[in-house]
Structure formats: C-alpha cells, structure tokens
Nucleic acid binder design. Structure first.
Ligand code: FES
Ligand code: FES
Lengths: 141, 141
DNA sequence: ACAATCTTGACTAAATTAGTCAAGTATACA
DNA sequence: TGTATACTTGACTAATTTAGTCAAGATTGT
C-alpha cells in the first residue's frame, strides 16, 4: 500500500488549483509558495497529471495550469492513479494463480488484503475535489 | 500510511497459529515452513506480539507460541498496532496545531486524510482472526 | 547432556522516497 | 524582437525505510 508525499502533494496542489480556479491559470510557482511544496517536485507531479488529462497547461507569461473538468468531476482515485500511487495491498500479482512468497496457491490472507483494497478504493472513488474544497472553506489561507 | 511485509507477515503468521491452534503450541519453525516466511524475521515479529500480549510463548522442546485469547477476540487492529504498523495518513502531528510543511495551520487536505484514516481503521477494527480463518477454510494448505 | 525452541540486540543490502539539478521549449507582452 | 515567465522532460542523488540476516544466549523437555 502506498500513500506518499507525491500523492499527497498531488491532491493538495489540485485542491489549491480548484480553489483559485478563476478564468486565469495558476502557476506552479504560486502553488509552491502557498502550499509549501518544492517547485521542482511539483513540476514532476504536474507532468503526470497532464499526461493523464487532469490538468492542462497554458504556456508563456501569466500561463499556468487549469483543471480540465469541474472539481466535482475529478475523483481522488483519478488523481492518485495519475501519479502512480496505486493502492495495492496484495503482495502477489492479482491475475496470476500463484500466491506470494512463491507459493503455488493464494496465501491465507489474500482475501483479506483484497477486501481492504476495495474498501480503500471505495473511499477514493467517492471523494472528489469539490468535497475537498467545500470542506476547508472556513480555513482559507 | 504503512502496510509492509512486517504487518502482512504478522497477520499471516497469526492466522496460521489460529488455524493450527490445538492444545500444543506451534513453533515458529513450523510457521516459517508453512507460510514461507524467514524464521529470523518471524522471531522479530513475535517478540513484539508477545510484548503486546497477543501470544504467549512456551519454551523448550516442543515449545512454541499460542494465542492468549480466542481468535475472534483478536482484532487485526491489535495485531498491526503491535508490530508498529500504525495507519497514519496525515503528515502532521495530530495533536499539534501546526500543519505539515511547517505551516502554521492545518493544510487543506488534512481533514481528508483524517477521514481516510478512520475509514481504514474501521476495517481493521471490524476484522478479527476468526473471520480470516473461516474465510479461507476451503483452501487449507 | 543435549536438542529444540524462544529471546534479544546489532547489523546491513536493497529498495524507495523525496526531492534537486539542469537544459530546453513555448508564449506573452513591452 | 527581446526578454521574462512559465511549462517540459530527463537524469541524478542523499536520506530513509524495509526486509531481512547474523549472532550469542537463555530455557526447558526428554
Ligand atoms: S497476498 Fe495474494 S497470495 Fe498472499
Ligand atoms: S496533513 Fe495535517 S496539516 Fe497537512
């Protein structure tokens, strides 16, 4: 299971983007300053977000990024997938008949981790960017 | 968020223990062979499980470990806590008023990660060892 | 006595994370 | 047209974490 700074920052940055999402694009520099995230790291993250069609970029002076859809159409699952933070709880390959630790059948905990994976993914499927910003509306900074 | 081999193996080993939990204790060597987990690593794990009163040990020849309670009284949450695999999704210290990235207030995603933490912990609170072994009853190996 | 088993601490190779560095491309605006 | 701003992309790396191994010993059953 993975939930690292990359995924965390991706969500944080997009929430910021959604919040300041007026007509004009938001530059990574602004996000970097507001959220305290390294600019270089943000570039890495937005490269992936763009390839996955979650944001689009506008180059040049006063350029930046904007969301491709409305905040309520962007699920957290989409974001985390885009930056390769898949929730993977089983250790074995799911398709394979083999289990983990080189066993020939699935291990005794396989079903458990599978259920957990579904449980977590449900959470990410149900939350979208809009939930996130309306939730923090009282604490704008 | 952490879910590593240590936690996975702890659950796997205890499920094994619960399954073969007759009068006589089960040696780590047996578990190691059945589940394909390094004996040395198991020792490390059971040291913690014992300190947290989840198993007790019986020394000497034909010794081993036994569960301190019935399988249905041992929640996965207990197990994972024992081996220090806390589900920790927020980056900041929860008690502190400060946010992550050295900010003076909680970040815009704080509430989200907090909800996720509750969501995952619910799962682990509701599952116990008995669920696990009755679930895999058809695939004894 | 001796073998099986638990007990506990120290150590380490490999992998992962969380970035940094760098060189370039595109665009807006003066 | 020059230049500042901002996106684009790949390569690199220090620090941390993981997943163990190694080792030396203490206990107990037979
Ligand atoms: S997790 Fe799939 S076999 Fe162990
Ligand atoms: S996660 Fe708590 S402040 Fe960012």
């Amino acid at each position: 299971m993975k939930l690292t700074s990359k995924g965390r920052y991706a969500v944080m940055a997009l929430a910021d983007l959604a919040k300041f999402n007026s007509m004009n694009p938001v530059s990574l520099r602004d996000i970097s300053l507001r959220q305290g995230i390294s600019l270089d790291f943000l570039e890495q993250i937005f490269y992936k977000l763009k390839k996955n069609n979650i944001v689009k970029s506008i180059r040049g002076t006063r350029g930046g990024y904007i969301l491709t859809k409305n905040p309520e159409q962007i699920k957290l699952a989409n974001i985390l997938n885009a930056v390769d933070e898949e929730v993977k709880t089983v250790q074995c390959k799911k398709e394979s008949k083999k289990g983990c630790n080189g066993k020939t059948s699935k291990c005794i905990t396989h079903n458990l981790w599978d259920e957990l994976e579904i449980h977590i993914n449900n959470f990410f499927e149900q939350k979208n960017l809009k939930d996130l910003i309306s939730n923090s509306i009282e604490s704008r900074n």
